[in-house]
Design a protein around this nucleic acid. Structure first.
Length: 525
RNA sequence: GGCGCCAUAGUCUAUCGGUUAGGACGUUGCCCUUUCAAGGCGAAGAGACGGGUUCGACUCCCGUUGGCGCUACCA
């Protein structure tokens, strides 16, 4: 039966602060958030920091930062409180202690005095006997009063274990459907460590119930944990939320996303300058589909269109290339001013622009976007391009240098540099006419001319239109880069830096070179 | 090993028994362009396998295979 969206849902996202928020977590948070907004419900952020050894203090802040960046806001959480505070499990000790006592008192749980060595030995022994279903033997479950007293007086530490009784627990999962678990396949499990620290299944079960979560939506890695949590809630007489387990987001090799494998961290994309709108859009389409060919969705669109019924069961691989394609689309859709501001900021961060860019610098950025804007998939792509434009010199591949060792080409380039030198403004040059005209003087083909200029200026045969490239480089760099070619080539030939006239006859003077009178439309520039 | 989940192109997905199996990313051809990118128009590319059920299965059932998850005093 479909979920009733007319009733407000209380949902939660419960990360453990053991690393950055990876994209799988981000999607889980997103789906929960969408459901809360859609139903006018509440989105709870709970921090599951019960594993002292793995917690990292900075992780919690990092998770906040990533969620905020994504535009996912929570209504209750550690930092803002709420009716069911505290929201950090490390601060909920008394609540778990009380629940554990009730479990003990009712006989639903018992104390286990086994040491970890004994447990380990048990497992070995079971394996040796060919039993691969290595579960807790339950040896402490039926301790006699005398045995128990002996352990107690010996001061042995104990864990609190939940006693799993025969039976079946059925999870009516909103995504996976009805899944039945035979208790025979679930061994007694520890709920409180011998150190007194509560464990995941216990805290999650208690908190989901006590925080009155109505729907638990999480990764399907937790599907097998669900019967344990439901048994716990049953034994404690607590209410049970509905459950929905969504297929995992996987690495390229189909393995589970882990926080240790540095890739696919939400922060990584944020720092690359990926737009949160693009990530949200991409994440939403991993596991959810609108049922139509539409694929551009804002967060608000998703609040409106998202339903659990259209969430798929299978896992999916996170495809970064597709994210970049989405991001490029978002970048193109951005108002120009915003794009300029974003790029300016990125350049400032990279130390490529001063904090208070003068108007000329702003204009430069605008020209840059005209030139390269549409090929940029993420803002980070722009930085190496900017650096290449800003560098004093340029590296021309040896092979290409060889092609430039041609007196006509050299002279042509020199003519270009003189042409540029004669101009006071490099914007809006009619280069598509000027360059062929000058090239014609030296009997160079149009295509070769453009390529020679491109190669001399950028060390590359490809790039944006020259009329945009010229103002981007500016007078000095153009002069320098073409001059560099001349000296490189000549040096390579062991020649003096002399220059050639149109007919091939060497000029006598090194400097100044007489302008070879570019044939046409110099005046229009 | 046991238990559970999953299974349409390289990837994300649509299809809810009858379709030329649709879309997107990627790949690729052409157009545009001095070039590249972008854009436009095309192309190639999929129901893991085997049994059923049915007039008819990608779709329902069973099995096999494969992938993943759980099986921790991690979450």
């Amino acid at each position: 039966m479909p979920l009733d969206y007319s009733k407000p849902l209380r949902v939660r996202f419960a990360p453990s602060p053991t690393g950055m928020l990876h994209v799988g977590g981000a999607r889980t948070a997103l789906f929960n958030y969408l459901l809360a907004r859609k139903t006018g419900g509440v989105f709870v952020l709970r921090i599951e920091d019960t594993d002292e050894s793995r917690n990292r203090v900075e992780s919690e802040a990092a998770i906040y930062e990533d969620l905020r960046w994504l535009g996912i806001r929570w209504d209750e959480g550690p930092d803002i409180g709420g009716a069911f505070a505290p929201y950090r499990q490390s601060e909920r000790g008394p609540i778990y202690a009380e629940a554990a006592q009730r479990l003990l008192a009712s006989g639903a749980a018992y104390k286990c005095y086994c040491t970890s060595e004994e447990l380990e030995a048990d497992r070995h022994e079971q394996k040796a006997r060919g039993i691969h279903a290595t579960r807790y033997s339950g040896r402490c479950r039926n301790l006699t009063a005398a045995e128990r007293a002996a352990f107690e007086s010996a001061g042995r530490a104990y864990s609190i274990n939940f006693a799993v009784n025969p039976g079946t627990t059925v999870v009516d999962d909103l995504i996976k459907g009805r899944v039945a678990f035979d208790h025979d396949t679930i061994g007694d499990f520890v709920v409180v460590k011998s150190t007194g620290g509560p464990l995941y299944n216990f805290t999650a079960a208690v908190d989901d119930a006590m925080m009155e979560i109505s729907l638990v939506l999480r990764g399907d890695e937790h599907l097998d944990n669900t019967p344990r949590q439901m048994m716990l809630q049953g034994a404690l007489g607590l209410h049970r939320p509905m459950y929905a387990h969504v297929g995992l987001i996987l690495n390229e090799d189909k393995s589970k996303l882990s926080k240790r494998h540095n890739t696919v961290g939400t922060d990584q994309f944020r720092k690359q300058g990926v737009l949160s709108t693009a990530l949200i859009n991409h994440l939403a389409l991993l596991g959810w589909s609108p049922g139509s060919d539409r694929e551009a969705f804002t967060l608000d669109d998703l609040v409106h269109d998202f339903t659990l019924e259209r969430v798929g069961k299978s896992g999916s691989i996170f495809n970064e290339t597709r994210l970049r394609a989405f991001n490029q689309r978002e970048l193109q859709a951005l108002p120009r001013a915003e794009y300029v501001a974003m790029l300016t900021r990125a350049m400032q961060v990279a130390g490529l622009m001063e904090a208070e860019p003068p108007p000329a610098a702003q204009r430069w950025v605008e020209t840059f976007i005209d030139a390269y804007g549409e090929e940029i998939h993420t803002i980070a792509d722009a930085i190496p391009l900017v650096e290449k434009l800003r560098n004093e010199g340029v590296v021309v591949p040896a092979l290409e240098l060889e092609r430039l060792r041609n007196r006509e080409v050299l002279f042509f380039l020199d003519a270009i540099s003189q042409y540029v030198d004669s101009l006071s403004e490099l914007r809006d040059l009619p280069l598509s006419k000027t360059i062929p005209a000058i090239a014609d003087e030296f009997r160079i083909k149009k295509k070769d001319a453009f390529q020679a200029v491109r190669m001399a200026l950028m060390g590359d045969l490809h790039g944006p239109p020259l009329p945009l490239l010229f103002p981007l480089l500016g007078h000095d760099r153009i002069m320098m880069r073409i001059g560099q070619i001349n000296s490189h080539v000549l040096h390579g030939r062991g020649l003096e830096p002399i220059k050639y006239g149109p007919g091939g006859e060497p000029f006598q003077t090194i400097q100044p070179t007489p302008p070879p009178a570019p044939a046409t439309d110099k005046g229009s520039a």
